[in-house]
Design a protein around this nucleic acid. Structure first.
Lengths: 242, 242
DNA sequence: CGGTTGTTTGAACTGATTCAATCTGTGTGG
DNA sequence: CCACACAGATTGAATCAGTTCAAACAACCG
């Protein structure tokens, strides 16, 4: 819906490529990708899994963008994580607590938990790979916690912009990217109201750090934006550990 | 310093027990615990590792309590995680970004990263074990993010109290435990000032949900405290997945 | 063109912070 | 055993960042 969804480039990535790009050996990657899974195509805004329902499954984002969320009291929602193409969501030992919703039209591969668990045991390299991926996302979560806990509204929005710049994969040289998130979603990530996100967003533009044309964002001064956000991006590249 | 540190019971747990208690097979646990590591005893408040310094290592908390933290601008600190006895901190692929500090007198086992990484590859069960542990802590981080992002001051403090009740391992039946955290530390966890934590803490007591005698906390109404906090504790027991 | 979603702006309000002072329990040294 | 130092807890008053409520506006879609 809205131009956002048409404008956004939607790079597609196969399971094999996704696995090996993030460090799994070619051989294991090939084996894993041959395991049974089903492919789903979901619309923007569509809920893939409600919070506290459904069975545990493994998800792999082929294209698009998935948000993990929880509903707090009074309709207030918190987005807990984002999964871009090539990233995944792993089942744990407990039933899933978090909901999953597509931010834009998204294709996912879904694998049964027991098949996933068997693969974990059968392919030692896969277990380490999953550990690394989980550590990488944990590092992102730490940044989000840091934002919500210790940064003011302006820095939070700036930080999310920095993260989005890097994670959408355009590279910071290009300094131009399409923001896939609405201001309400940015608010649900940074723990604010969309009204305040709107003001902080405008303030960042007023400061001359970025320019906006629709969802397209041009970063005028990456260094200054980073400084404002307190952003250091190394954690995004590989697993950052705890 | 202060009675806090003397009062707190400090259960000690061996590496083998810690590993097998959280689900690693006896055989693997025995092998892992034979690997070379050094034992450190640190005082309350002592910094074990400064943020953004030091080499990657694996830590295992034998007794006491460790806080993982980061310093934001202007001396503001954010605590990103707690590690009770039996829990660990794993090295990732990037240099460590977070500092480590003892909340109370603490004993840790420290293992070199390369030895840890070798073990990960040598013992497939160990890799899965580490994945489960990381998922469990990620689930706790989600709760903290939810708190900082979407709950008001009162609920945040109440939620931390609930979590501490469960994690200190007294069981909710006993309804009595020693809070190892100062109000400043609770503030650094919940993204508030210690002044506000103090007021919310007092408010929870005024509501009759708890009673305080020094650091000792008696929970009068677990159900109501949980409700106020929006706390559901299942995620703490085992790995909750993403 | 009408309907819907998202963005923007204004004004009033409030939860939490900041600044400042006081109080309390504990450990230390004489 | 007391005087003192010190960290932590508590309280009050002023201030402010961010929310809430409300309304207008813009872009896109069928």
């Amino acid at each position: 819906m809205s131009k956002r969804l048409r404008d956004v480039p939607k790079p597609s990535i196969s399971l094999v490529d996704g696995l090996s790009r993030f460090g799994l050996g070619k051989r294991d990657a090939a084996e894993i990708s041959k395991l049974p899974s089903r492919r789903l195509t979901i619309n923007a805004r569509q809920v893939l899994r409600e919070p506290d329902t459904g069975s545990s499954e493994a998800f792999f984002v082929v294209s698009g963008l998935l948000a993990k969320y929880r509903i707090v009291s009074a309709g207030r929602r918190q987005i807990l994580g984002l999964r871009y193409a090539g990233e995944g969501i792993l089942p744990g030992e407990n039933p899933p607590r978090n909901g999953l919703q597509a931010v834009m039209p998204t294709e996912v591969l879904v694998m049964q938990k027991d098949i996933f668990d068997d693969a974990l045991r059968a392919y030692p390299g896969f277990a380490v790979f999953c550990l690394r991926g989980t550590q990488r996302h944990a590092a992102i979560d730490y940044e989000w916690l840091l934002s919500c806990g210790s940064r003011d509204g302006l820095s939070r929005v700036a930080h999310l912009l920095c993260e989005t710049t890097v994670r959408t994969g355009v590279g910071t040289d290009e300094a131009q990217f399409v923001n896939p998130l609405t201001q309400l979603q940015m608010a649900e990530i940074t723990g604010q109201t969309s009204i305040n996100v709107n003001r902080m967003f405008a303030e960042i533009e007023r400061l001359g750090l970025i320019e906006r044309r629709g969802q397209r964002i041009h970063v005028n001064c990456w260094t200054e934006l980073r400084r404002l956000a307190g952003f250091t991006g190394s954690y995004l590249l590989t697993s950052a550990g705890q």
